[in-house]
Computed example of a mutant assay.
Amino acid sequence: MTSVLVTGAAGFIGAHAAAALARAGHRVVGCDSFNSYYDPRLKHARVQALLAPLGVEVAPLDLSDVSATQAFWARHRCEVVLHLAAQAGVRHSVQRPLEYATANLVGFASVLEACRLNGVRHLLHASSSSVYGQRADAPFREQDSTDAPASFYAATKKANELMAHATAAVHGLPATSLRFFTVYGPWGRPDMAYWGFAEAIQAGRPITLYGHGLLQRDFTCIDDVVDALLRLVRRGPPVPDAEGVPCEVFNLGHRQPVRVVDFVAQLEAALGRRAVVNFAPRPVGDVALTCADPSRLEAAIGPWAVTPLAEGLPRFVRWLRRWKGWDEDPVPGARQLATA
């Protein structure tokens, strides 16, 4: 049994990961700022539904508070830290960059120092596919250049990777950076497009597809992400590279990009409703394509199962129906559309 501290444990990926680690027999400690970037009631509900039944407590903690963070680490003395807390959202970072500097830069520096001072054996932390910037060639490989992020959010995630590498080089803290590719699923984030699309389609409101619906995303089911995280924790810290630095980077995506317009078609089928669609140009900060090469990850953890979008998306819709309290869809022909 390993003791694991999960930051952002009330978040989408964090709550699922903390629950899976606890079910696997690890001792899990959680923390979260419970901020209001989206409705904190959803975060508390995740804790109550996914973590409380397993005995996992999630303490309120602002990681940019350095002394409080160090005290929390010292109190719990965990061997592994899974750092998933962050200020998320590409578009939000265009207008509110200082929030990202505080949460993603100061907060991560605070985590690194707490890990160093408390002898953490392995730090795994969330990066993002956004670090690849605007690219037309695919798939994206970890060794590709990431020197031109297209948003401030992406820049903070690239900075996190460099900060982790520097700490590994100077202090020997083993670190694994995880580049997530458009994670979706039950208990997801309401600021993400797939959630907003589903609510609007259900209500008959129009949705806007940026980039005229031709933007492509490598959608990754939360179940697949959690499977990879558990196997990476079980595998243990990275061995030092040729320069003696115990640091590694992995893509968590499946090399299966889907056009957003096609994603919406599958969402229509899952909901049993047609979407009213408006098209618009791509906003500043959005990238045209994400597409992961997972070869390095599979070399580390073995064959990695792929949940098809046609299977994973209906799981999200079924959960959202329960969460929102929607009645059975009364639209004529909905059953035929859902199975088309």
Rank of each mutant, 00 (worst) to 15 (best):
Q336E: 14
D62L: 04
R41Y: 09
H125T: 02
D39T: 11
L5A: 06
F279E: 12
T176I: 04
G213Q: 05
G119K: 06
L21C: 02
I13V: 01
V260D: 06
G244M: 09
N104F: 14
L320P: 05
R255H: 10
G14F: 00
S67R: 15
R135N: 09
L61N: 00
L51E: 05
R23L: 02
Y184Q: 02
L289I: 05
C291A: 07
R75V: 00
G11L: 11
H125Y: 15
P332L: 13
Y132E: 06
A86H: 11
P240V: 14
R274I: 06
R231G: 05
H76I: 06
W195N: 14
L105W: 09
A198K: 02
L214P: 04
N118Q: 10
A159T: 14
L289E: 05
S151K: 10
L289V: 03
A155N: 12
I222N: 00
D262Y: 07
C31T: 05
L320D: 03
R141L: 15
G107K: 12
E311K: 03
D293M: 15
V4T: 02
H125K: 05
S129T: 11
D137Q: 14
V233E: 12
H171F: 15
R321I: 08
Q216T: 02
A193T: 00
G312D: 01
R231H: 12
A15S: 08
Q143M: 13
V284E: 11
Q95T: 12
H122S: 06
A228G: 04
E99H: 13
D65T: 00
S36L: 02
F72K: 02
R234V: 08
V233P: 04
D32K: 01
G8H: 08
I301H: 03
G285D: 13
L271V: 08
V226N: 00
R296H: 15
F152W: 12
G107A: 02
D144L: 12
F181H: 10
P257R: 01
A228R: 01
W187M: 09
A150R: 15
S177E: 03
Q336T: 13
S127L: 11
